[in-house]
């Protein structure tokens, strides 16, 4: 198993009531598998993603990625773990507005402490088809291009797992499709595990397995 959770629980307190955003989730994901996590908005899929990426901490339960218990890691260990093993693609891209495409991608490499940064970053951008635009700032690129930069940033460290949160959510249909094709191609080619959060059923069907969440519980 590349990713395994047991009895994962995340509880928010809202006023006097407690909401279980993620309720007793047990997942087993194999290497190279593509998984779609679907559900309506507010179902808890984004919270689950936050937990799996270590960007938020669980109330209880365990997450095991590549044999490491990330729920037991310190913030610092989590950071370097993320840098080396995990790639994340956000719905809103979250590129640094003041950095060029190349610099945005390099940033991830530098944080991970990699060598040959310029080379690798250029290669990654080439892979996503942005070779010509590597010196542009995010504001000078289209939405689809921005998301491709973000994908390049996510894969540049050759992570074992790629998490994507509605990667086409902010894009028009055609662009969205192109971006998704790119994402599936890349994961397949590099034998990465893809965990995709989406509410688009058609998109979900392209994955090996679909996990539907309602009120924090896997159906």
């Amino acid at each position: 198993m590349i990713l395994k959770t047991s009895n994962l629980l995340k509880t928010f307190t809202q006023g006097s009531s407690q909401i279980h955003a993620v309720n007793n989730v047990n997942l087993n994901i194999k290497p190279g598998e593509t998984i779609a996590i679907t559900g309506k908005s507010g179902s808890g899929k984004t919270t689950l993603l936050s937990l799996l990426t270590g960007l938020d901490s669980a109330t209880s339960g365990e997450i095991d990625i590549l044999g490491c218990k990330i729920t037991k890691m310190s913030e610092k260990e989590l950071g370097s773990f993320r840098a080396d093993n995990i790639g994340i693609v956000f719905q809103q891209f979250h590129l640094m507005p003041h950095l060029t495409a190349l610099e945005n991608v390099s940033l991830a490499l530098e944080i991970a402490g990699a060598n040959n940064i310029a080379e690798k970053a250029t290669l990654a951008l080439e892979t996503v088809g942005l070779k010509e635009r590597i010196n542009h700032l995010p504001s000078e690129l289209s939405g689809g291009e921005n998301q491709r930069v973000a994908i390049a940033r996510a894969i540049v460290n050759n992570p074992k797992i790629l998490f994507a949160d509605e990667p086409s959510g902010n894009l028009d249909n055609v662009t969205g499709e192109t971006v998704m094709n790119l994402l599936f191609d890349l994961t397949k080619k590099n034998n990465m595990t893809l965990i995709l959060v989406t509410h688009d059923q058609q998109l979900a069907l392209r994955c090996d397995r679909q996990i539907n969440i309602i009120n924090g519980i896997i159906q």
């Binding site: 913030e75 610092k76 950071g79 840098a83």
Partner: peptide, 14 residues
């Protein structure tokens, strides 16, 4: 906000 991005890319808080 940028700190959040740095964190998600794995940069340590320190």
């Amino acid at each position: 906000k940028f700190f959040g991005v740095y964190l998600s890319l794995g940069m340590s808080l320190k």
